[in-house]
Structures are given as structure tokens and as C-alpha cells.
Amino acid sequence: MKSEMKLATHSANASSVQAVLAAGVDIGSLGAKAVVLGEDGRVVGSALMPTGVFPEQSGRAVLEQALQQTGARLEQLSYLVATGYGRISAEYANKTITEITCHAKGAKHLHPATGTIIDIGGQDCKVIRLDEDGHVNDFAMNDKCAAGTGRFLEVIAGVFKMSLDQLGELAHGDAPLVPINNTCTVFAETEIISLLARGERAESILKGVFAAIASRVSGIAARTGVEGDVFFSGGVAKNFGVVAALESVLNCRVVVPEFDPQMVGALGAAVLALEAAQTQGARAIQAITGGVSALPERGRR
């Protein structure tokens, strides 16, 4: 179910550049995302691109792309927070914060009733519990195996020779579910090929794939418990089939924001950056090519 709350967005031109701009850059394992906020908290720029093999360059590039929409230069950014697995490569950021804290901030910002966040990204899956104030109260993650994550779905899409968007749509029909025993990316691929050879329908197999992902997520959620509204972020949240499977296994409504769920971490980073900028006052950071921020801070790593 889509979130009722919409985040105000607009594209600014150079003449409407605001005095305080704060940004978040989320350098994930598969995608790099950036969100720029004006001083009123509105999204004035955003961008998304594949991370590729050079996270440091991807982070800079996606940030520049988002800034282009605002007409602003990097020097006009008051504060920048980097998150995601590639955050340690973002030497140009004022501060690095984990994606767990950033997703919590972004989800709470978009949907204030959020109590539990499910984030399925490129290569990991997290369940985050929030306290009444919106702070992280507990979290659990999958271990180093990428089973049931975005990468897993990419491989499955490859088997069916479909795009990721098509996967979710295909599983919308009334076809019966065929159980999948494996969420291991390698074994599941083999199992699906065997099921197709046996004559099972693609729609039924995909329902089984989504149910397997949901089952794995519910196992992680059992370690933290589920309370309040369940908010779904990360690229996999765009897949209707996984959303429906999660609602079924968790037996509750799952909120998917209208704002791009893949950008929630970057949004949270930007909101944290804006809070820091408002706390510290608007100060320019050095040019992106300068490498080192002018605002070194305790939490920077």
C-alpha cells in the first residue's frame, strides 16, 4: 500500500537557489543515490545511478547530477551526509552515518507512524525497529549471504529474461503458488530452471520466489519484533509481488512510499544533514575536488 504522505518536490533553477542546501548521498552496493534539500526541507534535487566498481566516483557523480537540478554548486551545500556501504569512500562528506540510521530518519520523515522498517537493498536485507521518538531501537540484518535481496531478484529476472519491473507485474494474477525451497541465489536459479522444465507456469514460480523472500524477511523480523506501521524501503519495495508476499506473511499492511523507496536512505541522510546545518549554521564546504571537507567532525570516519 502506498504511503498517504507525499513529499513536496520541485526542481529549482539557478535563480531560486536557497541559502541553505543540505544533501545526502547513499552509495549502496548496486545503486548510488543522492537527495538535495532546501532549507524548508523540500527535495530540490535527486539522482540515481549504478554504483559500478568505483564507489568514490559514483558518489561524486550522483551528487553532481542531483545538484545540477538545483542550479547550485557543491560549494553552496551547507552540509553533506554520506551513507551506504560506500560511505567510507566519500571523503568529501561532512559526516558518514550508517544506512540503518538514515533509513530510519527517511522513513519517519515520509511516514511518521512508522514503527518498523523493512529495507531490502542490492545485497542485504534489514529490519529496523523505531522507538516512539523515531530513533533506532533495534535492528537485524541478514549475514554475508545475499539470498533474497535485490541481487537475488536480478538473477531471477535473468532466468526469465525480464526486467525487474516486469517480475512484479507477472506475479499479480491468480496463478497458484509453486513453493521455492531455496533463497540461495545459485540454488534458486537451478531450482527455477528445473521447475520450468517440469512445465510450471512462470507466474506460479515467481509467486513462490516472492513468498520465499518474504519468509526470509519474516525470519529476520522475528529477531526484532514488528510493531507500528511497517514501512518498506529499498529497491525491492518497487516490486508489487514482494510487497504482497510480505503483507501475507507478516499479516499486516506494508507501507510503500510514493517517494522512490530506493532513495529513502539518501533522503534520511539529507534530512540529517539539514538538521546538522540548521544546528551549526550555514557554512560552505570545500569544492568536491578538494577531497577533504571544511567541516571535520567527531563522527566522521
Binding site: 540510521t101 535492528f139 549475514d143 554475508k144
Partner: peptide
Amino acid sequence: RLVEVQTDYAAMDIETLRTRIEAFIEMLEV
């Protein structure tokens, strides 16, 4: 509060480990 870190002697999960522990420390700091 308790955070579980499940790992082994290989280096391949170091970033996952870092995220898990840093997030826990952020939680404690708040």
C-alpha cells in the same frame, strides 16, 4: 542493548560488520 555480529576469519564481510557495529554505536549515542 545487544547487537549480534556473526562472522568468521575471512575479510569479505568487513563492510557488513562495520555497518552493523557503527549502527549499534549510533543507537547507543542517541
